[in-house]
Design a binder for these strands. Sequence first.
DNA 1: CTGTTAGCGCTTTCAG
DNA 2: CTGAAAGCGCTAACAG
Lengths: 354, 354
Amino acid sequence: MLRPSGDLTMADIARMAGVSESTVSRALAGSSRVAASTRQRIAELASATRYTVNESARSLRLGRTRTVEVLIPIEPDNPQSISDPFFLDLLGAIADALTARGYDLLLSKSPPWGKTPRGNSLVSGRADGMIIIGQGKRLQELRDLAQAHAQIVVWGAHLDGEDYTIVGGDNREGGRLACAHLIGLGRTRIAFMGDYRLPEIRLRHQGYLEAMGAAGLSVDGALVVPAKFDRESAFAAAQALIAGAPDVDGVVASSDVIAMGVISALAQAGRRTPADVGVVGYDDIYSAAWFNPSLTTISQSIRRGGDALVDALFARMAGEPAANVLLPAQLIVRASCGAQGLTKTKRGSRRSNP
Amino acid sequence: MLRPSGDLTMADIARMAGVSESTVSRALAGSSRVAASTRQRIAELASATRYTVNESARSLRLGRTRTVEVLIPIEPDNPQSISDPFFLDLLGAIADALTARGYDLLLSKSPPWGKTPRGNSLVSGRADGMIIIGQGKRLQELRDLAQAHAQIVVWGAHLDGEDYTIVGGDNREGGRLACAHLIGLGRTRIAFMGDYRLPEIRLRHQGYLEAMGAAGLSVDGALVVPAKFDRESAFAAAQALIAGAPDVDGVVASSDVIAMGVISALAQAGRRTPADVGVVGYDDIYSAAWFNPSLTTISQSIRRGGDALVDALFARMAGEPAANVLLPAQLIVRASCGAQGLTKTKRGSRRSNP
DNA sequence: CTGTTAGCGCTTTCAG
DNA sequence: CTGAAAGCGCTAACAG
């Protein structure tokens, strides 16, 4: 490991300044219990020698690391990688929020359950708190972890009675909005595509059913198709959908990537979007506005999500309670449902609220 | 900070097992110098009590952190955020490579120069090495940092005589390939768009000039337009280009995002892509294949880039020399230059070599 | 094969 | 206002 600039330690600075280590420590911490002149002298010395406090020693002594772990658990059977655009946008927002608080971000992909050789960072004292992106399918493991450690906040679905704070979009309302939009445009045979083993998707599915019910439209099994998050399985699932429900005229896709796969499959089957089938996506990822046709989708206000996650985590780390946060779902109308005719959204309108 | 499960320390485990701390330490490290039966017993005890070694103490003692910092420096005047698709893809590749080696990833956005309150992780002993994404415009600061610390690897342009190992795409060849492709399709008034204050872009620009020269085509000032990395400035820059060089029939854009902005601006000015103007992008980001028209672009084999960065860093951390790595640039032909007529690339062909 | 001992670099009582 | 001393939890000589 590189030591602070040329193996310089606090004892060295103390010797050079002709004071004790304690005084250096206090001076560098900005304590008013040290003479202003001494403080000044030490500050200059530290800066001139490029000395920096060794954070490992500091963490050991203080029992705090000033580090937060962000965990993006990837299940082995889930092809969704860390490169999924939505996750990455959220990660960027979290990074900004943590930086603003002077905390470091430890990025991790391996879930703390299962055989982790070194244990997870929270348990092994490498981080003061943990943000987990997505509950995944291992709800029980997550529950156990949260029971053992209070400093956990999760991005995901708003389940009841969990021990961790949940921040997430209003998935039920999002699903409802997407479906209602299609219904409002006169579609009646509307399909839902997504992996409803995931809590968030299950809620979107419920919203979809709610909208269908409210409009008096019936839903049969052929209209609800499981689909994983990558483009290829979405494409395959869409082909199954077309075979099972040839009269489909609308699709509520549970992610933008799925929506893109669906539109491709429809095109290959000779169905035009939006003329023959309207499609709504979810997430409003970067490419949604660029896709052809541009995607009507549900936006999750990622920036606010990052802030809310970090706020809640710091509350919990301070021993305070932190309520769940439900971020509003917003419908972004573009071309893929036909509501705009062939008009494109205005250039650059990637997010509704940048 | 959460202590290893219920404030359990190695001394506790030692007491429970009826051995000394050293034995526990050795047993947990898998040392063969401890009886297999003892080792077994301690392992079970640790697992039952959910004990994990405290990493802060371990790092302090060992002088190593098993952590690598990945720095994505964002200059204040550069709107390119951490959410830039290319950076994020590369980050994902690096995360995988580090995980495979059992290292943690500390993500950071603030450059170590300038007033960083806590110093950077390398100097403050929070990381054993550092991967910096992009040289940015602060070459001298980077040079100083690399002179002080050997454990630095940079993704970027292959400059000569730097103290750090450089891994990056063959930018010159990429620029040349892009331009030669357009020339091969009969274009003669080919523009270059990008911020050539950045070393990587400067090399792409050189490749562009090389191809133009080899074909005996002249380049005048109106054809070379500075453009930042966001869509809006690319759009504005493209408008300037059209005004200054109305006869332009090809564009080498220094990123896919810029290419998208250019195509939008061209469309607004009544120029069709690829019919009137052929456009080549750079990076092969996620949306490149989805854009309409799909982007012909230069792929940088990001996965190999992540591996090469991590390999080189570990070599340097071991005190060994690590040569620069030049990754081949590959032309991905899609629709935006007219080489395919209106044929789309095969679905799902996001990367040339996944 | 196992235990004793020292110390990584820092912060913080407790004295002065 | 400053210093001396203790100790955070761990690992690695050095003995036995």
